[in-house]
């Protein structure tokens, strides 16, 4: 004998969809700016028919059955695309959970026996709950993908090596230095040193919020690597707070040339290159002009 509620659902497919749509549209948080009602209806219809088609005497008792794979695929697709479009978890949650309301409403109208009604709605409730858990999981996964991509982008764009003068390159570091970023920073700096043939590199850390022993370790590594290449490395942009932390942590930076500002680092670099910046004297110019 076929389960009571499955028969009801198959008969009332249209009704369920309508009810679900009404539920969704009635919600305050409906995001018409992100998705048109037609798209929403298409999504909902696809999901409802997949769900009802999969329901049978076995699957109704087990929300995690493999038969639901198709439904879960559709759900995760919706969930990921919603995560990328910027829906909040609540809005995505309501999308799935409002289906439960629609299903139960139909059941209530059709099944008169209270005991059967309770039993059936319990089962439906369980299935939809497991669906919503799945939805949240994929939603978070979708978000994490976005975050991961942004992290990659940040680490790529945040290590520009600037050629400030002949044979002098500078690299402003912005953001926290972890091992992965140190690797990127080191590689791009060393590559640029080779390409430009520079013998002085300035690492500016004004954009690094905190320097702990690990970050200092990374900095020392970068400096040692540039030295191995045959270039001198100056660390600039050391704020008073960072100087304090470094000393309190007992990190030894005495072997590294450190300057407080990029300007003083540049001055030091000029001195190393035996260059001098002088103010042009007015009188001399006039003499030349005359």
């Amino acid at each position: 004998m076929k389960n009571e509620s499955i028969k009801v659902f198959q008969r009332k497919k249209k009704n369920i969809l309508e009810l679900w749509m009404t539920n969704q549209l009635a919600d305050q948080g409906l995001r018409e700016d992100l998705m048109s009602n037609e798209d929403l209806r298409a999504q909902s219809e696809e999901l409802v028919s997949a769900f009802i088609d999969t329901l049978d005497d076995v699957t109704i008792n087990d929300g995690r059955a493999t038969a639901f794979e198709k439904v879960l695929d559709i759900l995760s697709g919706i969930s990921i695309s919603r995560a990328k479009q910027g829906y909040s978890p609540r809005e995505t949650g309501i999308f799935v959970l409002s289906l439960k309301d629609a299903l139960q409403q139909v059941l209530r109208d059709e099944i008169k026996d209270v005991a059967v009604l309770y039993d059936q709605s319990q089962k439906i409730s369980k299935i939809i709950d497991s669906f919503s858990i799945e939805t949240f999981e994929t939603f978070i996964k979708g978000r994490e993908e976005v975050i991961l991509r942004q992290t990659d982008e940040i680490s790529e764009i945040s290590t520009p090596v600037i050629r400030v003068w002949d044979n002098i390159v500078a690299l402003p570091i912005i953001g926290t230095l972890d091992s992965a970023r140190t690797q990127v920073v080191m590689e791009s700096l060393l590559q640029e040193i080779v390409e430009t043939g520079s013998n002085i590199a300035i690492l500016d850390i004004s954009g690094v919020p905190t320097v702990d022993s690990l970050v200092a370790q990374h900095l020392i590594k970068t400096v040692s690597a540039t030295r191995l290449m045959g270039a001198e490395c100056i660390i600039s942009g050391i704020r008073p707070e960072i100087a304090q932390t470094v000393v309190h942590l007992g990190i030894d930076l005495t072997n590294i040339i450190t300057k407080s500002t990029l300007a003083s680092a540049l001055k030091a670099a000029f001195a190393m290159q035996q260059l001098e910046v002088v103010k042009r004297q007015r009188q001399n110019n006039m003499v030349v002009n005359n």
Binding site: E187, L190, I193, G197, S198, N199, L228, M229, G230
Partner: peptide, 30 residues
């Protein structure tokens, strides 16, 4: 020691061998 490649320099640092006592330069001329 001249002309060390970036990858080599990184490897040596990761191995904890900063080659103390060895001077380095970018190319033969330098």
């Amino acid at each position: 020691v001249v002309g060390m490649q970036p990858a080599v320099a990184i490897t040596l640092i990761e191995l904890g061998l900063p080659l103390k006592g060895v001077h380095s330069a970018l190319n033969v001329e330098r």
